[in-house]
Design a protein around this nucleic acid. Structure first.
Ligand SMILES: [Zn+2]
Ligand SMILES: [Zn+2]
Ligand SMILES: [Zn+2]
Ligand SMILES: [Zn+2]
Lengths: 167, 167
DNA sequence: TAGAATGAGTTATATTATATCATCTGCTCC
DNA sequence: GGAGCAGATGATATAATATAACTCATTCTA
């Protein structure tokens, strides 16, 4: 059985109702954590909310600065612990090539990811890209490699930014 | 038309003449730098040599420690400058997910790369994986994305390590 | 109530990377 | 020869990212 070539989630449109976007993400997170019997504590929730403020990847120390008004005692460990939790629960992704973090749009399951990172507007678009993952799987087969994580990060220009710069 | 399924270069065999391997890499680097009119200075050469000591990815500060006997004055900037140069010349790759550096086996041209990173033995195998890159290109098309860099890093177990652990 | 599990506070430190300014070396141009 | 330039390196400082180790509080439960 093969491949619905379509992404399993709606990619972020160039302009969209971001409030809705955030609301969905937070709701999903809350539900999942209840289902799993893990605690989406106040700090963790706040960090998740801050990450979802935009579709840009956010740095840990930016989050620290932004959470301090809310959590006066916040220290680096505060943030990194929350980030660990959120990553483990599949609610955010770490963008290795930026040392930064971005909300996951297909939350709740561990999954393969293709991250398209725009150099201009800095937004990160997550795509399922099952054909890419299929090709990767075949390559592992040839190489005798057993993959534990597939993270594909690509830097470039998103459609909108490419359009603007060519006009 | 589809697919020579074979990699375009010889992957590192489980056991191989590594001296030869290093010798080739250094020779190639020397030649390319002459051709390009850039200077493969003593420090840069030493750093490249240290990186090629194994097929594992090496950290910048490891390189710093290892180069100190040779370059007494070496400081972080010494290493990072050499690394910048080597990356720009396409002689090494930065492994984003490890903050580390590995020799490039297909030196001299900027190119797409698939890095298979073994969690056990820590070796990094570089593959051309043209089918993966093709699938990626098609995905960019669909997403309207203009890629500037394609770096695919996958963590898992290499054939040898997977074999050993299953025996 | 003792003991385990989890989350968070606190302090300190480790690791990774860059900024800035000074110096040196080889080269060109006059 | 000497002024001027470019590229590489020396030297000092600091920024940015991340973890360790120990403490305490809460909750659950045996
Ligand atoms: Zn949105
Ligand atoms: Zn963009
Ligand atoms: Zn070798
Ligand atoms: Zn291995």
């Amino acid at each position: 059985m093969k491949t619905p070539a379509e992404p399993l989630f709606t990619p972020p449109p160039t302009t969209h109702n971001h409030q809705q976007c955030v609301h969905n993400a937070l709701k999903t997170a809350e539900t999942l954590c209840v289902e799993r019997g893990v605690q989406l504590t106040s700090i963790r929730h706040q960090v998740l909310e801050l990450i979802w403020e935009s579709h840009k990847a956010v740095k840990a120390y930016e989050l620290l600065d932004r959470i301090k008004p809310l959590q006066n005692a916040a220290k680096p460990a505060t943030i990194y612990r929350a980030l660990d939790f959120l990553i483990t629960q599949g609610l955010i992704h770490r963008v290795e090539s930026l040392n930064a973090f971005v909300g996951c749009r297909c939350s709740g399951r561990q999954h393969e990811q293709l991250l398209l990172i725009c150099k201009q507007c800095e937004e990160v678009e997550e795509r399922t890209a099952s054909q890419v993952m299929q090709a990767l799987a075949e390559e592992f087969q040839r190489a005798g490699f057993t993959a534990h994580s597939k993270a594909v990060e690509v830097h470039g220009l998103c459609q909108r930014c490419a359009g603007l710069s060519s006009e």
